[in-house]
């Protein structure tokens, strides 16, 4: 079985996010790029399936983006146990999900993957579309927000998360592109052996150029505060006194 895992480099939670001088993108020079959280769950799910199915199974970690931001992402995937990597190089800031999915579809078509896993959404753009778009483009069956998977011969049974505590089982024939919900498993850490071995694994770099975007960012801005917010700062003791005043006298909850 051949499984692709789509993984994306995104700014870490701790990174400072500032709009750059163009007003349309962020200042990448002050950002630390890490693996998108739900992609780690997608990779773990693929590795577990490979381990349980055995045979000539292969997990391929795939990323798209600029060389500077994404190199760590592929290395991380290979160190955790992916067999090889595909890096689709795109130095432009493409934000249109359709354009991004076309680049993936064009470059992955000849691979004929049985399964493509992706995280449910990237925490930077948050569109949550790429995996499903690629699935449609490559004629695959699709499902989203998988919280459990069971491979059964030439098909995969997936427990989809619906809203407010509801679920649904869906059975999809291969080939299938599935987005993985966070929390589905416990992602492994790379072992020292894995990290050393990653350097010897195959990494295929493919050049790409996106077509013109159908939707694009006119600008980026810091969201306006919706409320009048009272800021509470100072040393710990000062803060505690102020919070006590709020809880006791303003809100009267204690």
């Amino acid at each position: 079985m051949k499984i692709a895992v789509l993984t994306k480099a995104i700014p870490s939670y701790e990174s400072s996010i500032r709009v750059d001088s163009s007003g349309k993108w962020i200042d990448e020079s002050v950002v630390n790029y890490v693996v998108n959280e739900s992609d780690s769950y997608a990779l773990e799910e693929a590795l577990q399936i490979k381990e349980s199915v055995g045979g000539e199974s292969e997990v391929v970690v795939v990323t798209l983006g600029s060389e500077a931001n994404t190199s760590k992402v592929i290395k991380d995937g290979l160190a955790k146990g992916a067999d090889r990597g595909i890096f689709i190089k795109n130095e432009s800031t493409t934000t249109d999900p359709l354009s991004i999915a076309k680049l993936f579809a064009e470059n992955l078509k000849s691979e004929n993957f049985d399964l493509i896993f992706s995280g449910l959404q990237s925490d930077d753009m948050g569109s949550g579309q790429t995996g499903v778009l690629i699935g449609e483009m490559l004629g695959m069956s699709t499902a989203t927000l998988a919280i459990e998977t069971q491979v059964e011969g030439d098909s995969i049974k997936v427990k989809r998360e619906l809203e407010s505590g509801w679920f649904q089982w869906v059975t999809l024939p291969f080939p299938s592109s599935i987005s993985i919900q966070s929390g589905i498993n416990e992602p492994r850490y790379p072992s020292l052996k894995g990290i050393m071995g990653a350097k010897r694994k195959e990494l295929n770099t493919l050049e790409s150029s996106p077509e013109s975007q159908n939707q694009s960012f006119l600008n980026l801005y810091v969201p306006k505060t919706e409320k009048v917010t009272e800021k509470i700062e100072g040393d710990t003791d000062t803060i505690v006194v102020k919070i006590m005043d709020i809880l006791k006298n303003k809100l009267k909850v204690i």
Partner: peptide, 17 residues
């Protein structure tokens, strides 16, 4: 408009199609 970068920023999106 939609939120991006984990809600730290927002963007205005224009559609050309």
């Amino acid at each position: 408009s939609k939120q991006v970068f984990n809600a730290k920023l927002a963007t205005n999106i224009e559609v050309s199609s």
